[in-house]
Every structure is written in structure tokens, then in C-alpha cells.
Amino acid sequence: MSTQLGVWIAALCTIFMYSYLWRDNPLFKLGEHVFIAIGAAHAIVMGYQNIVEMAWRPMVGGKAYMVLPLVMGAILYTRFFKQVSMLSRIPIAFLVGLAAALSIRGALDASFIKQVASTMVPIKNANDLITMLGVVTTISYFFFTATARSGPLRFSAEVGRWVMMVAFGAAFGNTVMARMSLVIGRLQFLFGQWIKIL
């Protein structure tokens, strides 16, 4: 058995959480609440350090306009005061605008043009052909306006659905290993570092 305090605490945390697999119980509840508290505290600490490093120090150091994001961040808290609570929509609107534009950038480039481009390759063998047809039929599954869902497109959409099912099954099967590794990791910790029989 380990003699280190840290290992013991970690082992208890592990066992508390695993106890949920049997049923919800006080040990799991304790673990859950402590976990959420540490997680929230860690987020606050990181957030605080971000504000200090990214806004406060530059502002004090001469970049006076950094007061703007600081004020906007502070405005988020107006939601606790009824008369001015609607002001908190402004920083949210800022974040939303940023996210919408970034999403369009990402979707246009990485998810649309790049994906289309990498499918347009010379067909040298059966695999290339299957990939190309697989992409096209899957796309056809997503037509929403109903006129497009008749005749050959209907058939294509059905093929697309098959392709997706193969992909989903494969992704599921492929992930099992990664997830098993996680339990193996915990077992190696419990029986290797804590009880020391491995």
C-alpha cells in the first residue's frame, strides 16, 4: 500500500466516483459536490489571471483602450440590478457577433471548401470512387425542401443514410478502445500506485 497522502486522497476520490456505477449514493454525492466546487474555483482563478494578464496589466502599462473590454465585462453584472439589467445584453451581443463571424469563417474554409476540395481527386481505384459517391450521397440525405426528396434523389438519400450508419458504427467501434484505456488507467493507478500489486 502507498504511504503518500496524495495517492490515498486520489484513490478515495476514484472509489467515491465509481460507487455511482452501482447506484446514486452519499459517497458519489460528496465527490460530485467537491468536484464541482474545485472546477468552479479553478475556472475563477484562471479567469482572474486572464483578466489581470490580458487587460489589467496592458491597461496600466499604457494601453488605455483596454478599459473597454474591462467595462464590457463588468457590464455583464448589471443583470443583477433590475433597472439596468438589459445592459448586460451588450457584452453578450459582442460575444455573439464574434462567434457568428468566426463560425462563418471556419465553416466556409475548413468545413466546406476544404472538404469539397479534398473530395475532388482523380479516381484511381475503387476506394476513391466509393469515397466520392459516399460523400455525394450523404450530402443528398440532408436536402430539406421536399421537392428534392423524390426520384433518384430519394434513392441517393437512402444510400447516404447507409453510408452514415456504417460511419457511425465504425466510429463507435473505434472509440471503445480509447474509452477502455481510461478504465485501464484508473485500474493501473488503484492497483499499481495505491495497493501496489501490479
Binding site: M180, V183, I184, L187, F191, I197, L198
Partner: peptide
């Protein structure tokens, strides 16, 4: 599952 993961480790 726990048993099947544990035995080969030992």
C-alpha cells in the same frame, strides 16, 4: 467489464 479489464493486467 471491470473483471475483464483487471485479469489481463495481473
Amino acid at each position: 467489464l471491470l473483471v475483464s479489464l483487471f485479469i489481463p493486467l495481473v
